[in-house]
């Protein structure tokens, strides 16, 4: 892919993000002090978990990740709401890729595509299927994250050999998604944790 096209896609994505941000959050009451602090904490948690898991080498399949950062996103999705989870997820991917030095590179695009597809899948299931459990939503998120990454890699590589790894990545993502889901479920069961998200709690 030529650098010009890559650059145009990057600028287009940034403009799209800004437009979506304004549309989603323009009437939101999200920006009180308490909410900002809470989102900041979850963002820091997601970044820390993301940086930690990026230090673990790919020993099972290429792009192997424990999906620890997704715990923070699932917690926000079920605890605070989808807008909060979306904001933290996007910021997390951007900041982690800046910190790792792969922003606007293939690695960064793979992370972004994985995040976008994963969040969209989790959101649709969470909104359309009220009885869906935390663990199931987390598993689907992990699964779609890997599928999104494979598809970006396929578009970048321009040949289908990369699909060889898909079944192995699906197996790993089922396990890591379940693990993250169990952690999120355990925390969300605790009243001392879900209290964080209640609006009426005084500081």
């Amino acid at each position: 892919m030529s650098p010009w096209i890559g650059g145009l896609i990057g600028i287009g994505a940034a403009i799209l993000f800004l437009v979506l941000f304004v549309l989603i959050y323009r009437k939101s009451n999200m920006f009180g002090v308490r909410k900002i602090v809470l989102l900041g904490l979850f963002l820091a948690l997601a970044i820390a978990l993301g940086m930690f898991e990026s230090m673990i080498p790919d020993f099972l399949v290429p792009g192997f990740k424990l999906g620890l950062a997704n715990i923070a996103i699932v917690l926000l999705l079920f605890g605070a709401g989808w807008k909060e989870a979306l904001l933290v997820d996007v910021l997390r991917v951007v900041l982690v890729s800046l910190l790792r030095g792969n922003f606007m590179t293939m690695g960064g695009w793979m992370s972004f595509a994985g995040m976008a597809l994963s969040f969209l899948g989790m959101l649709l299931i969470h909104l359309l299927w009220k009885k869906a459990s935390v663990i199931f939503v987390s598993i689907i998120g992990a699964l779609l994250h890997d599928v999104g990454q494979i598809f970006v890699a396929f578009i970048y590589m321009e040949n289908g050999a990369i699909f060889y790894y898909l079944p192995f990545m699906v197996l790993v993502s089922l396990a890591t998604g379940a693990l993250a889901g169990i952690v999120a479920y355990t925390l969300l069961k605790r009243e001392s944790f879900t209290r964080l998200f209640r609006k009426e709690e005084a500081d």
Binding site: P167, F168, L171
Partner: peptide
């Protein structure tokens, strides 16, 4: 019992990916 549908979906994906992984 409350999560039967979820178990079936995840189980199907697991079975399909194990089969493909073994074949490959």
């Amino acid at each position: 019992r409350r999560h039967v549908v979820e178990i079936i979906i995840v189980g199907s994906i697991l079975a399909a990916s194990i089969t493909l992984a073994v074949v490959l």
